[in-house]
């Protein structure tokens, strides 16, 4: 690869990177702004992503970096009209073109990245970014609630796509998909819409045989002494396959049945 070709490629890459960086900062600004709105107006974070990602894609794909060389030439007068000419005649070779390429490579050393960065505008954008971020953190900390609910919360989207958020009440999910009438079990649907008012709930006792109000004291049981019948005993020299008398076999069987009960 020729030196001038490498130099032009590097220049193009740097300009594209600067363009991309600028668009990323703009889309971050947009994201932060919409995030602030989502906190104030209580709508889903999902809606915050759409404009910022959309803007990033649009600005990168639709508004391509055209006339990179013209932009460079405007900042560096020594390269005026030479850069484009050298770039368009990269693969030609004759004494005049070769001499032009040498001049372009020499003059490209005068190109500085700082020429294409508007420090003032970037500083302002970063300040706005910091300001909005601080505002978001502050509003979240003091838990500001402006009582604006646009009614486009998590449930609307997520229910439709069948995804459940952590901690969400499972009763509310896919209600309409269940078969049969479960209102007898869960109660009337209209009652479930309680609104924002505080409820006083009381839990009734369950109907069962056990009376939980009666609490006896503890009875001490000695588990160290086994409560085996006297006729049964174990010894170490009795093997597993040793014959046991028929009378004793019945006792052993009954014993184990009683324990199971």
């Amino acid at each position: 690869m020729q030196i001038v070709e490498k130099a032009l490629k590097e220049l193009k890459n740097v300009m594209l990177l600067l363009h991309f960086g600028s668009r990323v900062i703009d889309s971050l600004l947009l994201f932060i702004f919409f995030l602030l709105l989502s906190i104030i107006f209580k709508f889903s974070w999902f809606y915050v992503l759409i404009p910022s990602i959309g803007y990033l894609i649009f600005s990168l794909v639709i508004s391509k970096v055209n006339n990179i060389y013209t932009k460079v030439e405007n900042k560096v007068p020594e390269l005026n009209e030479q850069l484009r000419t050298a770039a368009d005649n990269l693969y030609k070779s004759n004494p005049v073109v070769d001499s032009l390429k040498e001049d372009v490579v020499k003059n490209m050393k005068k190109v500085k990245t700082s020429y294409f960065i508007n420090e003032k505008i970037i500083g302002i954008k970063l300040l706005i970014l910091c300001g909005l971020s601080f505002l978001i953190v502050f509003l979240s900390f003091i838990n500001v609630n402006f009582d604006f609910d646009l009614g486009i919360g998590n449930e609307t989207i997520l229910n439709k796509i069948g995804i459940r958020n952590y901690g969400q009440d499972p009763v509310k999910l896919n209600f309409f998909l269940s078969e049969g009438n479960i209102s007898d079990i869960l109660g009337n649907k209209s009652i479930a819409e309680l609104g924002n008012k505080e409820l006083q709930l009381g839990i009734g006792q369950l109907q069962s045989d056990a009376d939980l109000s009666i609490v006896d004291g503890e009875s001490e049981l000695d588990f160290n002494q086994p409560n085996f019948p006297k006729e049964i005993y174990t010894s170490y020299d009795v093997s597993y396959n040793e014959k046991i008398d028929k009378e004793n076999q019945k006792v052993v069987k009954n014993y184990f049945d009683q324990i199971i009960r």
Binding site: E81, R84, T85, A86, A87, D88, N89, K92, N94, P95, V96, V97, L100
Partner: peptide, 12 residues
């Protein structure tokens, strides 16, 4: 001959 060799940018 040199005159014909002078390069021209595409936008020109």
């Amino acid at each position: 001959m040199l005159t014909r060799q002078v390069p021209v940018a595409n936008d020109m």
